[in-house]
Amino acid sequence: MQKISPATVVAAKPKKGEPAPLASALWEANRIEALRSYYILDTPQEEAFNNLVRLAAYICGTPISLVSLIDSNRQWIKARTGPVEMGDTPRDVTFCQHAMLSEDVLEIRDPQSNPLFKHYPSVTGDASIRFYAGAPLTTPDGMPLGTICTIDTEPRTLTEQQRDALRILAKEVMSHLELRRARQQLELEQQKMEGLLRMANDNAQSMFVSSRNEIFVKQDHKLVRVHTDDIRYVEALGDYVNIYTSRERYTVYSTMKELEAKLPVREFARIHRKYIVCLDRITAIEGDAVQIDTGRSSDRAASPPLIPIGNSYKSVLLSRLNLI
């Protein structure tokens, strides 16, 4: 999204302590697009944001503090602290619509005496707001989304230290929003990768339905082609399975049933609820376990791995081996 500065579309920059003029329709459309890219509107309360508004109230000595986001026609509250219950508010009667466009903390010391604010329902109604201070929440591209603000029912003035604290808290709110969006994007990419993996495996299965000599597995955000004739054995591990080849071990999110359906039936056998082995790689059977040739030269001196045979699988395994 192209960065558009408010300076290019607003006739005059807001001065300290004065409300900002409304931005142009073009800039506003870009701002709404930026806001909605965070997928934050109408989400449940989150502890990280609740903690920040509590901290703002403590520092500024006010009973009320909010993280508010300005949508196209409403003010929506992400986090709040204080005795006043505030839901969606029409945007045109909110202090935050002005504060978010300010270059600095916008402080309104007595809205009852200000002709722009004195008719607001929050001033004339039960809320009886007599003080407001808000710091804009601005994206890295310069788009304002809303504010973190403090509110009181009595006129007051913030110290410079309190104003600076609000600036810092605004940056913290934006950091949480950015981290939240990055986490959501990562989850979306993972879902896309899982879908791609399923599609690749389904396609591979349909292409090689007779021999099923290749599968695709996801490793480090990429798909890797594995030849089934290189697989020695498969081990179940909770919601994952380990696929052991002559060179690598692949850990994939799957079930034994799903993987067993993708392996060549003639070459592989389930010998335990946790193990599938390649029949051609069995070198010996010792009691209730099989030895597997790993095919790794570095393992030649070591004993081949012993894999247990489940009681319910033993007769089937023996029937598939050429016994003399």
Score class of each variant (00 low, 15 high):
K262M: 15
E172P: 02
T157Q: 12
I129W: 04
K274V: 05
P308A: 03
H98C: 01
A29S: 15
P90V: 13
R163Y: 10
S175D: 14
Y39F: 11
A7R: 08
T139R: 01
S297K: 12
N114A: 02
P155S: 13
R247C: 11
G287L: 11
P21Q: 10
Q161S: 14
V209I: 09
I148D: 00
F216I: 05
A182D: 14
D229W: 01
G87F: 14
L188S: 12
Y58A: 13
G134M: 03
E235D: 06
E258A: 14
T157Y: 10
I285N: 06
A56R: 12
K257S: 12
D239I: 02
I292M: 08
Y244W: 03
D152K: 12
R281C: 15
R266Y: 04
Y313E: 08
Y240T: 07
A99M: 13
R181K: 15
S128Y: 07
P264Q: 13
A165L: 09
V105K: 08
S298P: 06
K314Y: 04
K78S: 13
F208C: 01
K118V: 10
D110N: 13
N242Q: 10
E267Q: 10
L69P: 04
I64P: 01
A170D: 11
R296P: 03
Q184G: 13
I129A: 05
I285Q: 13
G142H: 08
R320P: 14
D220S: 02
A20V: 05
T138I: 15
R296L: 11
K274E: 10
P308G: 05
K274C: 13
N51F: 06
S211R: 14
W76K: 00
Q191P: 01
L69V: 15
E214D: 05
V265K: 13
E154Q: 15
P19D: 08
M199W: 12
K3F: 02
L169A: 07
I215P: 01
S319T: 12
S298W: 06
K13N: 09
Y39L: 12
I108N: 00
E267S: 06
C149F: 05
R31W: 02
K118I: 08
P115A: 00
N201G: 05
R198L: 07
N213K: 06
K218A: 14
V105S: 02
L263W: 04
L66E: 00
E46D: 13
G61Q: 03
S298R: 07
L106E: 06
S210T: 10
M143F: 15
A57S: 15
K15V: 09
S37Q: 10
K78Q: 15
R130N: 05
I70D: 03
K118H: 09
N311W: 01
E103Q: 11
H272Q: 02
L259V: 11
C278F: 04
P63V: 02
V217Q: 04
D42P: 06
Y313L: 11
